[in-house]
Nucleic acid binder design. Structure first.
Lengths: 188, 188
DNA sequence: CGCCCCATGTAATTTGTTACATGATTGT
DNA sequence: ACAATCATGTAACAAATTACATGGGGCG
């Protein structure tokens, strides 16, 4: 049940409403953890009931009121507990790899467009990460001595950057392989 | 519903029982797709009902009988259909990244052991992948001209290798960062 | 005798996804 | 007028996880 913990971390970094959390899960945090607003609202309600979160009604003008959630003491304790227990090195769900192996039983050439599309998506993500890195950590606007929280956010971002670069290079490899198979007619 | 497709690919590569599939999902395929035996049995039954798979009862001596599943014609068609429709570039569930950002609100040094443990797991996986690559693709025992299926399996394996190398390098970066934070007392 | 491997499943619970629903404000 | 953004949810359904359950054979 790690969505709970992702929410705790995000709310510790900055309190916010369910809607705001959902938006964050589409950007920064969402790069290594996804969740939709329906899921988030459900979990927020449960966690509030468990006393892990505190709510504050924030009236707004020109906009619907919102409920601002923040982490209560028991929530902090729950996070600390989780941080101290080991977790499984994550398992992947890599659809594209399944498709590539499946292509052996169909037409490999038909995958080229799909792979190119993924290549584009990952290139865009990389550009986005790099822009964020310049903005928040390495650019002239960034705070000179970073505090612990910023250092940790930066190292996570570097992980995202490394992941995208690796993926792009691999997709190039996949494309080259597909082209090689296309050049050599599949008669084997 | 991509477990269906992962099963189709695996059974096309080689027919087998639910138990055997579960084992494969712990090894080769499992590196980019995970599933437990409970899940697999349920899906196999459903797919058989849908006519996508064929079953054959295989009596064995000294062992419980097994049901060997193989892909029926409609299953092949279903796979082909899936291969031709675009899929979303996958979203991640990276617990460790959540932990790292969470560590800012706890003791970052406490994460060192956890990160080292992950480092070990990924190093082991890399070694295992490399051994598999030598055995099946680059070693002297491997078939000299690989067919299309083998080329595709190889490029997927290269992806796994690239992923593990990237992850190991990143975990080194994480460890260095954690040590740097430990060296500089968190007074900021 | 106990543990692991083979082989199959059921049941309960928790998560995650998809679709539907409401309603005000701002911008084109 | 229409679409997008902010803000919150419910309901139905699909999928994944965890626990429980059974039973023979081989190994130390």
């Amino acid at each position: 049940m790690a969505l709970d913990h992702a929410i705790l971390v995000s709310l510790l970094e900055k309190p916010g409403s369910g809607y705001e959390l959902a938006r964050r899960f589409e950007r920064s945090i969402g790069y290594f953890w996804t969740a939709t607003h329906q899921q988030i609202y459900r979990v927020l309600k449960r966690m509030e009931g468990e006393g892990l979160l505190a709510v504050r009604d924030v009236p707004q003008q020109g906009r619907p009121d919102k409920k601002e959630y923040s982490v209560a003491a028991p929530g902090r304790a729950a996070l600390s507990l989780w941080l101290h227990e080991p977790i499984e090195p994550e398992s992947m769900r890599h659809d594209l790899a399944v498709k590539i192996r499946g292509a052996a039983f169909d037409d490999p050439a038909a995958l080229v467009r799909e792979v190119e599309r993924h290549h584009q998506v990952h290139s865009d993500r990389l550009a986005h990460y790099l822009a964020g890195e310049r903005r928040d950590f390495t650019g002239p606007e960034a705070p000179a001595p970073l505090d612990a929280g910023q250092e940790l956010q930066h190292v996570v971002l570097r992980g995202g950057i490394a992941y995208e670069r690796m993926t792009i290079a691999w997709l190039d490899d996949v494309l080259a392989t597909l082209h090689r198979l296309g050049a050599t007619p599949p008669s084997a």
